[in-house]
Simulated assay, not measured.
Amino acid sequence: MKSIVIVISGRGSNMESLLKATAAGELPVRISAVLSNRPDAVGLRTAAAYGVPTQVVDHTEYASREAFDAAMAETIDGLGPDFVVLAGFMRILSDAFVQHFQGRLINIHPSLLPSFTGLHTHRRALQEGARIHGCTVHFVTPSLDHGPIIVQAAVPVLDGDDEVSLAARVLAQEHCVYPLAIRWLAEGRVRLVEGRVFLDTPQDGAAVLVSPPAQVAP
């Protein structure tokens, strides 16, 4: 069974989707620990309620990003995970950290990459008049939000949507596709070849999911 370490900064709703799937026997992984850079992160209490060990590496105690990342890497290495899963980790990682975990570092981003990298993705999708929006699970590379894509979920942008309603619709899909992607990784069905992802025999759904169905005006 593969092991993962989940890294958070806040409430960790995507982390909780992974905890729930694991507890239900739907995710064939062992969650070795949940780490946070913030000692007050609500997700730490959630993880503890599931019986998962938690650790804090407080970024405010380090003089530089590189020093913090080195401490994080040392802590994670001590846990020996097969994959490191970012779930709302709100810090840009140094190239050295990313390269240290190359091919094992996974993130979920609230847009259909490569569109809308960075922050405020839902607001920008609405401002640009996008009709389809969604989320992306991808391998992390030194180029921010540009790593090889594992799976995406798309949702329609509906008339009358605001940033809150669109974000909620996307988040519901994040909670579906993140466990799915981690299960594929745990089962050895994801191959990373020359910067592209290949998925072996995806029998439980296509690599792009669209939900809910778009509404067509009469």
Score class of each variant (00 low, 15 high):
199 L>F: 09
59 H>Y: 12
125 A>F: 13
151 V>W: 08
94 S>G: 15
153 A>R: 12
118 G>I: 05
64 S>A: 09
76 I>L: 05
49 A>H: 06
203 Q>R: 14
194 E>N: 13
164 V>G: 10
199 L>T: 13
193 V>Y: 03
14 N>I: 08
172 A>I: 09
163 E>Y: 01
63 A>K: 11
55 Q>N: 09
48 A>N: 03
51 G>R: 07
137 V>D: 09
116 F>Q: 03
12 G>T: 12
16 E>P: 02
170 V>R: 01
114 P>L: 11
23 A>Q: 15
1 M>Q: 10
22 T>R: 14
185 L>R: 08
142 P>E: 13
109 H>F: 10
85 V>W: 12
207 A>D: 11
164 V>F: 12
20 K>Y: 00
160 G>S: 08
30 R>W: 01
121 T>P: 05
50 Y>K: 12
1 M>V: 13
205 G>E: 02
72 M>S: 03
167 A>E: 13
9 S>R: 13
55 Q>T: 07
5 V>S: 05
137 V>S: 08
215 Q>N: 03
178 Y>R: 02
79 L>Y: 10
107 N>T: 00
27 L>Y: 05
167 A>L: 06
60 T>I: 00
97 F>I: 11
103 G>V: 02
54 T>D: 04
51 G>L: 07
166 L>W: 07
110 P>E: 04
21 A>M: 07
89 F>G: 02
168 A>H: 13
105 L>N: 11
154 A>Y: 07
128 E>R: 15
53 P>K: 12
195 G>F: 10
197 V>K: 04
196 R>F: 07
16 E>M: 00
184 W>T: 02
77 D>A: 15
215 Q>W: 00
126 L>H: 06
45 R>M: 07
117 T>V: 11
190 V>I: 15
95 D>C: 00
206 A>K: 13
9 S>K: 08
27 L>I: 01
12 G>R: 14
75 T>I: 00
214 A>D: 02
96 A>V: 11
42 V>M: 01
84 V>A: 05
150 I>F: 11
35 L>M: 08
196 R>Y: 05
149 I>S: 07
121 T>Y: 09
129 G>D: 13
